[in-house]
């Protein structure tokens, strides 16, 4: 209990004293996770829509793969990306390993299936009669999709939030492909792991409060966005 209070005090002190390293780490965490979830959203929603609305050969197999991907262990994603980016690997000449870009890659890999899968299931639940109605009113394909996107807004925001939760909580892959390099790839989760192994539990606890506040603020805004105008 003492440690908990101590950690909270430390967190507040860190923020007030304006320790530049903490800000740098927090800022990088924010940049990396938001980039990852943005990329996942931009790629994942269109794919989810297509998977949800159309029927084609191999669609079911694709869905199985997406659903497995939802549970892809981050360390597995990390290991794959590490081997891909190694100097001896296929993308070795780009020297991307141990850079924030590599962390974003790993985080996209673990969050993309979540966004695709949840978007797809939202679109599959759309009433067939509504689809027919929209079409009979002469909507273009673009109009149809944008109308349906509005209709499924709540589920899609939930998909983005679930993806974001995965991304900000991720540590295994970030450690492997990022390397926890001070001033370059050290993010909140990897610094927590490091501080624990150093035995600085108070610092680790303080960082955990900062991480949770960050997650809270972002999820708060996403939830507001999701629930907005619900009464109308």
């Amino acid at each position: 209990m003492d440690l908990l209070i101590e950690g909270m005090r430390e967190a507040i002190e860190m923020l007030i004293s304006g320790d530049p390293e903490i800000f740098e780490i927090t800022w990088l965490t924010l940049k990396v996770s938001l980039s990852a979830i943005l990329i996942s959203t931009l790629i994942g929603i269109p794919i989810g829509v297509i998977l949800g609305l159309t029927a084609f050969r191999g669609r079911r197999l694709l869905l199985v793969l997406v659903n497995i991907g939802m549970g892809l262990p981050p360390v597995v994603a990390g290991l794959w990306i590490t081997m891909l980016l190694w100097r001896s690997g296929p993308l070795g000449s780009l020297s991307l390993l141990y850079s924030p870009f590599a962390i974003v890659m790993a985080q996209v890999l673990v969050s993309l299936p979540i966004v695709i899968g949840l978007t797809c299931s939202a679109f599959q639940q759309i009433d067939k009669n509504m689809l027919i109605q929209i079409k009979s009113l002469g909507a273009t394909r673009f109009q149809t999709v944008s109308l349906l996107l509005r209709e499924t807004r709540i589920a899609i925001m939930a998909a983005i939030m679930a993806g974001f939760g995965r991304v900000i909580a991720e540590v295994g892959a970030a450690m492997m492909v990022g390397g926890n390099i001070r001033g370059e790839t050290r993010i909140l989760t990897t610094s927590i792991v490091m501080e624990v192994s150093k035995g600085n539990f108070d610092v680790a606890l303080a960082l955990s409060f900062i991480l949770m506040s960050l997650a809270f603020i972002i999820t708060f805004f996403l939830t507001i966005l999701q629930q907005r105008n619900k009464k109308q």
Binding site: T41, S146, R153, L225, N229
Partner: peptide
């Protein structure tokens, strides 16, 4: 309107 909000925030 909702669509706009969504797009703008994105």
């Amino acid at each position: 309107k909702l669509n706009k909000i969504f797009t703008v925030s994105l």
